[in-house]
Amino acid sequence: MIEYGAADRVKVTLTVNNESLTGYASSRMLLSDFIRHELGLTGTHVGCEHGVCGACTIQIDGRPVRSCLMLAVQAEGREIQTVEGLSDKGTLNRLQQAFRSHHALQCGFCTSGILMSMTNLLNENPTPTDDEITDILSGHLCRCTGYVGIVKAVQSLVLENIARENGENA
């Protein structure tokens, strides 16, 4: 059995964006704080710390979850994807580029979490319906954009994906 006392300093090793990283956490440290302040990956943002706003959303073992509602010590040995893992050597990926083209962000604070959810959505289903996009996006609060650009950005990829599928089928 694993037991970490309140005053223990726990070594946590995990895979972040395909890289093995190690940091130290107290038993009560939130995963969001660990990622930001212990691992220095400040692209994941914290907006409410009670699971509502979605800014801190990351992927754990391929699923988007709130990093403010997990403990750092629970992430030991897990696979985590954060926004920093999306670009390839500084080149924005398709989703990021679509966000840019469609002005899907303003202050950019909620954006990291939204990207992590939308990445997962499109991975699981490259051609989600508008309702499916809305359903997943409703787990995030954006105060700047009115969501219009975000929806358009994702829809633009859906159209591309449909065209690709049609191309493959033809």
Partner: peptide, 17 residues
Amino acid sequence: MKPAPFTYCRPDNVEQV
């Protein structure tokens, strides 16, 4: 908005729980 201190246990089986 941070938790108060606690001991964290991750038992290996239900008996330990």
